[in-house]
Amino acid sequence: MSAPAIAKPNVAAKNFSQLAGFWDTPIGKKAVMAVTGVILFGFVVGHMLGNLQIFLGAEKLDAYAALLHSMPGVLWMARLVLLGSVGLHILAAVQLTLQSWEARPRGYVKKEPVAATYAGRTMRWSGPIIAAFVVYHLLHFTFGAAHPDFQPSKVYQNVVTGFQVWPVSLFYIVAMVLLGFHLQHGLWSMFQSLGFSHPRYTPKLKQFATVFATVIVAGNCSIPIAVLAGLVK
C-alpha cells in the first residue's frame, strides 16, 4: 500500500458518551433500523389480517374497527410506537444514505452490479414512495381528507367507494408491490444488521423473505382488485 504514514489521530481512544456513540456508528443506526423494521413489519402483517375481514362482510369489518376504537389507550399507544418507529427508521435511513453518498463524491463512468438484487438496490426508492403512500393512505381512509365520499366509522363503505376510483386503486397496488420489494430485502437484511448470519439458515431466510413479501403483496392487493372486479361492493 502506498503512503504508509499513519497521520490521522486514533479516534478509538476517544471517550464518547455511550448512546450518542452508538447512534454515531452506522452499525448502531442499522440496528435501530432493524428493530424498528421488525415493529413495522409486525404492523404490516396485523394490518393486512385485520383488513382481509372485508371479505367477511361489512358488519364484521366495521365491528373490528369499532373494537379498535373502543380501546383508545391501546390504540394510541400502538400509534405512538408506530410513529416513533417510522421516525427513527426514516431518520437512520436518511443519515446512512447521506453518509454513503458522501463516501463516494466521484462516481464511476461505468458500474455494473454483480450480485445486488433489484429489491436491495431500490430500497432508497421504495422507502420514500411507501412513506408518501402512508401519508396519502392516512388522509384517505383514517382522516378522510383525501376521500371524496368519506363516512366516519363506515369502514367497509369507505373502502368500497374509495377503491372504485381506479387510479386510487392503481396507486395502492403499485405502493404494495414496492412494499413487497422493500420487505424482501429488509426481512433478511435485519438479521444481518443485528449480527445473525449462517451459511445454512441465511439462504432459507432469504427464501422466507421472498415468500412472505409475496403473501403481503397478494393479500393487500386482493382488496382493491376485488373492489374493482365488483366482488366486494
Binding site: 490521522k8 486514533n10 479516534v11 478509538a12 476517544k14 456513540g21 454515531d24 456508528t25 452506522p26 452499525i27 443506526k29 442499522k30 446512512l96 444514505t97 453518509q99 454513503s100 453518498w101 458522501e102 463516501a103 463516494r104 452490479p113 454483480v114 450480485a115 445486488a116 438484487t117 436491495g120 438496490r121 430500497m123 430485502h185 433478511w188 437484511s189 444481518q192 444488521s193
Partner: peptide, 25 residues
C-alpha cells in the same frame, strides 16, 4: 470491534446495506 468500527467511521467510508457486491467481487 469498538475501535475498528469507530476508525472505519472516522475514515468516512459509507454504510453497509447488505447488497453483497463486496462478497461477489
Amino acid at each position: 470491534a469498538m475501535r475498528m468500527v469507530a476508525q472505519m467511521n472516522e475514515e468516512l467510508f459509507g454504510t453497509c446495506t447488505n447488497l453483497g457486491e463486496c462478497e461477489a467481487t
